[in-house]
């Protein structure tokens, strides 16, 4: 519960500071929004560690191939980082750069999930008569 309050507090304080500073020096507003995003992400990432360990333990018990789970976690990490960069670029008005980053992230994610897709195809080929 205290993390939620901390996250909301950081967001509100950053918002107020940005409104104050935007009239005098608009470049610093972007810096403050980036720093606020980083602080909130770091708080939520501390909680993410427990989720990751839970996923890994459950997947081992269920007998799912560990390689796939690690690929899935990598994809989640890439998605978090690219979403962070995309939202910062969109915030500062550069939607062209944001869409390029998004496209690059998607390409990297697809290229990382090639092993999963190939193993899925092999599975289907074995099943089909």
């Amino acid at each position: 519960m205290s993390e939620v309050i901390k996250i909301i507090g950081i967001g509100m304080i950053a918002l107020i500071i940005i409104i104050v500073i935007k009239q005098y020096r608009p470049e610093f507003a972007i810096y403050i929004s980036i720093i606020a995003g980083i602080l909130i992400l770091s708080i939520s990432l501390q909680k993410m560690g427990e989720i990751v360990t839970l996923i890994q333990s459950v997947s081992e018990k269920a007998g799912i191939n560990g390689k796939f789970i690690s690929i899935l976690l990598k994809i989640t990490g890439i998605a978090i980082l690219t979403e962070f960069a995309v939202s910062v670029c969109k915030d500062s008005g550069e939607s062209a750069i944001a869409s390029k980053i998004e496209m690059g992230g998607k390409v990297i994610i697809i290229s990382m999930s090639i092993p999963i897709i190939s193993s899925l195809l092999e599975l289907m080929i074995n099943i089909l008569p």
């Binding site: 901390k6 507090g9 950081i10 304080i13 950053a14 500071i17 104050v20 500073i21 005098y24 020096r25 610093f28 810096y31 403050i32 720093i35 606020a36 602080l39 770091s42 708080i43």
Partner: peptide, 19 residues
Amino acid sequence: DINLLFKIAAIGILVAVLH
């Protein structure tokens, strides 16, 4: 965490005033 935000806000205001 939070004093980093205030540090940057302080630098921003200082630069604006100096400018």
